[in-house]
Design a binder for these strands. Structure first.
Lengths: 139, 139
DNA sequence: ATATATTACTTTTGATTTGATAGTAAAAGT
DNA sequence: ACTTTTACTATCAAATCAAAAGTAATATAT
């Protein structure tokens, strides 16, 4: 399994290299589940509307961990459940996800989420990240 | 060939639906070539650093046209060359691409482009779109 | 006018990725 | 002790991707 530290990029272009990392059908979707829907466990990801197959989910979680976007943690008195949480690097993708959400809201389908009404985007990023952090503070 | 008007989305989520449209290794890369590098012809796309295969390029251009992101035009006195230009809908993706560029600049590889120094992003989007339009005004 | 080069593709074929289904193993609940 | 839950792994068919070669129309050079 490769992390993007040793990934061979198609070329030197930063945008293209970004697509080498997140340019597939699932990577940003899983990060979105975490960032905006506060999903944390394999089960929660599995049961989401997207119906991600367990083999794909397992693979993406491993990749995301290798690339440093997420961390896998356990809580005391529960040896079974793994909790996946976004790292600062994972959170750094929130502007991209939010721009995608805005774009989709205006071009594909309405987003029933108060975030589309916030005017100042920089402030919005902070709100979303703060919410995420308070939601995962216990972990 | 399907356009996204009749595409079946995985679920109702706007972000996921956006990934159903642009979540692959090439779609945003081709749009980036147009928006930031002013590439316009099949030949120019083919000769770019990314080394896109002609079959993939052909397929993506068709999809992008079907989905209304680009238009294919010819100029007078040249029956051979096709020029592909971004529509308003295609240009509406520029905030997403620019956020990707910023993210990559800070997390993967430096972006040798003055855009990374512009402070106000809304203003930046306008600058990029204006530049693109003046560059394609003749078409 | 003819030959060569250019542009824009399509076709073919093989490799890789995706995704549905089934199965396994350890921990937790009853 | 038995059942359920959680977190996966394994298998395999289908879809997609990608490299290479081939084709066709237009444009340019001689």
């Amino acid at each position: 399994m490769m992390s993007f530290l040793d990934k061979i990029f198609r070329c030197d272009c930063p945008v293209t290299s970004a697509m080498d990392i997140i340019g597939d059908r699932w990577t940003l979707v899983v990060i979105k589940m975490m960032l905006l829907e506060y999903k944390k466990t394999f089960k929660e990801f599995s049961e989401s509307d997207e119906s991600i197959a367990p083999s794909i989910l397992s693979n993406r979680l491993k990749m995301l961990e290798k690339d440093g976007f997420i961390r896998k943690v356990k809580v005391a008195h529960n040896l079974k459940t793994n909790y996946y949480i976004l790292t600062e690097k994972g959170l750094s993708l929130s502007p991209v996800i939010i721009e995608l959400a805005f774009w989709s809201h205006h071009n594909i389908k309405r987003f029933d989420n108060p975030i589309v009404n916030v005017k100042d985007k920089t402030e919005l990023f902070n709100i979303i990240i703060d919410r995420y952090k308070s939601n995962t503070a216990v972990l």
